[in-house]
Amino acid sequence: MKIEKATQEDHQVLTEITKKSKAFWGYSAEQMTIWSDTLTISEEYIETHFVYKLIQENQVIGYYSYYFENEKTIKLDNLFLLPEFIGKGIGNQLMTDFSHRIKEIPTIEKVLLDADPNAEKFYQKFGFTTIGQLETATKNRFLPIMERNL
């Protein structure tokens, strides 16, 4: 497996991974349709964010993306795997790569993310703590807001 910078040509495969990964958690088809635009990775998104794809045997199986909130804070915006790779330790490889990459940026003091509720425990394993909740457009649904100080 290797991790490399995504290109704009990857936008469709990254969108497919995002949608399949999100659906893995049992969200309804109706909910997935509502979220379709939010879960779409555009060519422009790849151009304006830091996006890294995970490749196994010439197939993109996952990715992560981030951006700078400010000079001291990075926002981990996405981390998704194809469903058949969830729960097999491969997400750990993405998080490890992300962690190594941002440690090379001397001004960064913390990382923020808005987690899917199903992924909160995953991020806790990497030292993230829940500091709040983000209300979503879906009634009575909140995303954990998490942070990790470096």
Rank of each mutant, 00 (worst) to 15 (best):
A6R: 01
E9G: 10
E9V: 02
D10L: 01
H11Q: 08
Q12L: 09
Q12I: 06
I17R: 00
I17A: 01
T18S: 14
K22N: 07
A23L: 07
A29T: 10
D37I: 02
T38Y: 14
T38Q: 14
T40L: 08
E43V: 03
E44I: 07
Y45H: 13
I46V: 10
H49T: 05
I55H: 10
E57I: 03
Q59C: 09
Q59S: 13
I61D: 12
I61C: 11
I61F: 06
G62K: 03
Y63E: 03
Y63L: 00
S65R: 00
Y66N: 05
Y67E: 12
F68I: 00
F68G: 02
N70M: 04
N70D: 15
K72N: 15
K75P: 00
D77S: 10
L79T: 04
F80R: 04
L81P: 01
L81M: 06
E84L: 05
E84K: 12
F85W: 09
I86P: 11
G87L: 05
K88E: 14
K88Y: 09
G89C: 05
I90W: 06
G91K: 05
Q93P: 04
M95L: 12
T96W: 10
F98D: 02
K103H: 15
I105S: 09
E109N: 13
L112N: 04
L113Y: 02
D114A: 14
A115I: 00
A115S: 15
D116W: 07
A119T: 08
E120P: 10
K121L: 11
Q124S: 11
Q124A: 15
K125N: 14
F128Q: 00
